[in-house]
Structures are given as structure tokens and as C-alpha cells.
Design a binder for these strands. Sequence first.
DNA 1: TATTTACTAAACTGAGTAGTAAAATTTCTT
DNA 2: AAGAAATTTTACTACTCAGTTTAGTAAATA
Lengths: 206, 206
Amino acid sequence: MNTVRKKSPRQLEKQRQILNAALKVFSEFGFSAASMDAIALAAEVSKPTLYMYFGSKEQLFESMMVAERDVMLEPFEHSSGEMVSDLVDFAWHYADVVMRPEYLSLARLIIGEAQRFPDIGRAYQKAGPDRLLSGIIAYLETQKAKRRLDFDEGELAAQDLWALILSAPRNQALHIPDQPPSTAQIARYLENGLKVFIKAYSTQPE
Amino acid sequence: MNTVRKKSPRQLEKQRQILNAALKVFSEFGFSAASMDAIALAAEVSKPTLYMYFGSKEQLFESMMVAERDVMLEPFEHSSGEMVSDLVDFAWHYADVVMRPEYLSLARLIIGEAQRFPDIGRAYQKAGPDRLLSGIIAYLETQKAKRRLDFDEGELAAQDLWALILSAPRNQALHIPDQPPSTAQIARYLENGLKVFIKAYSTQPE
DNA sequence: TATTTACTAAACTGAGTAGTAAAATTTCTT
DNA sequence: AAGAAATTTTACTACTCAGTTTAGTAAATA
């Protein structure tokens, strides 16, 4: 396996190109049906270059997963610093990440290949859902500290919030990629979910 | 495409054998990576026989999907007749179906191939989640009629119940096939979910 | 200018795979 | 038991694809 020694900006650019192409092709066809020729073509790179940067199809797949996962969750990372004003903002921000077509494609790919790449499934669960869940828990705890919410286990409350808001539209989107729920439909589930959550967990339900 | 004319019990038996093998191999490898040779081997049938019963790989895949889906949902079908005594029973019955390893495998397969087989994704949504949802709605409506529950839209209430009970363990199981949640873990989510649901929807929360 | 580095295009290897053909064999029917 | 139908075995075709090799080119470096 001949790796590149030093990474010039030009090489980093090429690496990005390849990873982007890999995401695109793998997402569309799945691991097995995606061909390295197709990825090379999409990346506008020759096949030997592909193998120079990433030794094999499996390695490319795993590298792509790690890279894309981080890119995907980047916007969420940043927001965890700023203080969200209320649950609605929080929920919408969350929905924006999870319901993005690229995120859904990746999730579909991961679920579909989970049996063949158990490490990737586990890593995704940690870096994706679990991390987002931590964010929710942290937020809910601050609300609990302010006596606005009441619960025993933060994890369960966070799971409930997630489930109430996004379970229905996300599952549907996973099964039917070509008919993603509209913003209005998402809003319907989101508002109802929040209403239920508040009724169950708020100390002063309106 | 040379189909078999009359179906002797022996042929039906063979058909079952093939479909079972197809489920097994497709579930393990996904559509593309599964080979017809492997399926023939698993079914203890020759490859030409495979092609005699099901004209092509895609046809076999689709037939298997339809057949397995129906088998999978059979136990649920029957139970909708008998009157479930309370929500806990109902939830457990539901969890038993959805968290079965074979059901999860099939769901993983469908999600992974949804982009390549949009019809199958749509059909599954209708025959699986949507049908189960109808069952929940029907049950909730009877409770509403008895003034035990209160809600505006049955669909939303049913989605909430589903989400609260099974969203968390199911998602985790989809990502991490080799570590399915234990009965105790399922119970934890289920009991908490029911508690929240009752608090939000019951007319007389305990 | 000479040399190294990164890359490309194209052909090739070797393995696997969907699907078919035909003859041999088993099973069913009469 | 004899003939018909269903199946199997075996072999094959045509193709795809991961990964490699070769021969040559553009650009950076010395």
C-alpha cells in the first residue's frame, strides 16, 4: 500500500474530491454495487490515483464514512455553544440536521451495510445519534435546573423528545427516499411532538 | 420466463425453501453482494430450478419481500381480532414483532436498497408501519370512545405511542445488529414510553 | 536543464457472477 | 412398468469489477 507522504494543498484537494465522489456513488448504489471505476470517474481522477490515496474499496468506504460523518455533524457542533432560546428552536435545528437528504442517504447506507461493516455501524451510533443525544440531555438538564422541566433520567427524557419529534418523518424518509416529507409535514410532527413532550415533562404546561 | 403451471405440494415446498434461503442470503449480504449460487446452495436447489421458479434475481428479491413481509406480520394480523386488555400488553405484542431479528434484518435490507427499489420501500411502508399504525389507531380510538384517552388526531397519537415505545431500541438495533437490546432494555424504554404517553394522553393519569 | 513527483490513460489479470443450454436422472402419472 | 414431466448436473457464455501494470505526461524541484 503506497500512501502519499506529505500532503500538499493540491493533494488535500484531490482527497476531498475523491471522498465527495465516494459519498455520492456509495450513497446511490450501496457498497457492493458501487464500482471503483464509477467513483474514479465521478472524482475526475484516475483509478490508480484512487488506490494511491486509499488502498482498497473497503478502506475508501471507511475513510469516507469517518470524513462525511464529521462534515455532516459540523453545523450541530457549533450550535451547541450558543444558547438556544427555547425548545422549538432546538427541535428545528435538530430536524434540519437529521432530515437533510445527504444525512438520510448516509444513514440508509450505514443501516444497509451494518451487517457487513459492524464497526461503522457502532462508530456512527456513537458519533451521530449518541452525540446528538448528549446535546439534548445537556439542554434538558439546564431546563431541569431552572425548574422548568422535571424528570428522573435525562437519557430517557432526551430519547422521548427525539422520538416524539423526528421518529415518524425520519422513518418514512428512510423507506421512501424519493418522497421526503415537506417542511409542513415535519412541522406537524414537530409541533405535536413538542406539545406532548411539554405536557409530560414540563412543570408548568400551558 | 417459464413458470410452473400447477403447484403440487412438493413444488410449494420447494418454493418455500427458495424464499427462505433468499431471505437468509439477501438479509446477510444485501441485494448486490448476494449471489444466486449462494441462494441455490442455501435452498438445496439447483440454479436452473431457481430460475424456473423465479425468472430473475430482481424477481426473486421482490417475491421474497412480499412473501416474507406477509409471514412476518401474520401473528400481528391474528391478534387484532382478540381484544387486548391494556396498553402494556399491546405494546409488548408490538415490540415482539418489530424487534424480532428477522424483522430487523428485513427492515435493514429494505432501507439499504430503498434507493434502488423504491417500489419495495413504498410497499413496505404500506404493509408494515402503516398497517401496524392502523392497528394502533383503532385501539386508541376505542379507548377514546371509552373516555379513557383524549386526543384530536388519532394518527399523531398513534405515532407518538409507537415512537415513545420503540424508536430508541429499534434505531439502535438497526445500527448495531450484533448487539440487539435485551428484553430488560426494551422493557425500560417501553415502560417509560408508556408512562409518558399516559401522562400526555390519558384522561385520568395515575 | 535534469530529475523527481504526481498523475493519467489504457490495457490487462483473475476472480466472480447472472443467466442459459443440453444431456442425464429422478419423480410423478397413468 | 412405461412414458411424461420436473429437476439436476455440468458446462458454458458474456460480462463486470477489484486491483495492477505499463508507458507516458505535466508540473514542481533542484
